[in-house]
Amino acid sequence: MNTQAPDYRYHTLVVTVENKSGVLARVASLFARRAFNIESLAVAPTDDELFSRITVVVDLESAPLDQIVKQLDKLVNVVEIRELYPGHAVERELMLVTVSAEPDRRDEIVEHLDRAGGKVLSVGTDRMMLSLVGLPARVDEFEDLLRPYGIVELQRTGRVALATLDDHDGPGR
């Protein structure tokens, strides 16, 4: 395990776990039990049905990365932990958002959306539903941009991440 001390507060771990019932609860309860903070967490099956992948962004203010990684690694169902350093990872997040949009504001909103690379999913009489996939920071910016129009409902997935193609032998276990 690479244990170089990062000097940034949030850090992304990609955790491969056995695809068994209760595994997410074990990970979540470990974080609660040890008072480690989670910034975001996303779980999905992998291409191999035996394993799932958890992408977790941890807040290093609560505990050193080294300790979080080692405690996670003690969970019997955790198979592999990979640390992703910024610049060595491709990170994406999906946002679905319903925003107030009277007909006279729609063009403006669509312009923002086009610039951000999002999509209109559906249009109602006075609101629109949009989606955006992008870097978490870009999604943050787009969310700020929409706020003045009136956000009716919003759901973000939390980030998912993979190592960059030339970095597959890089940091990891």
Binding site: P64, Q67, K70, Q71, D73, K74
Partner: peptide, 8 residues
């Protein structure tokens, strides 16, 4: 034996 104890 337990890596998590080292440096805890």
């Amino acid at each position: 034996i337990d890596p998590a104890e080292i440096g805890k």
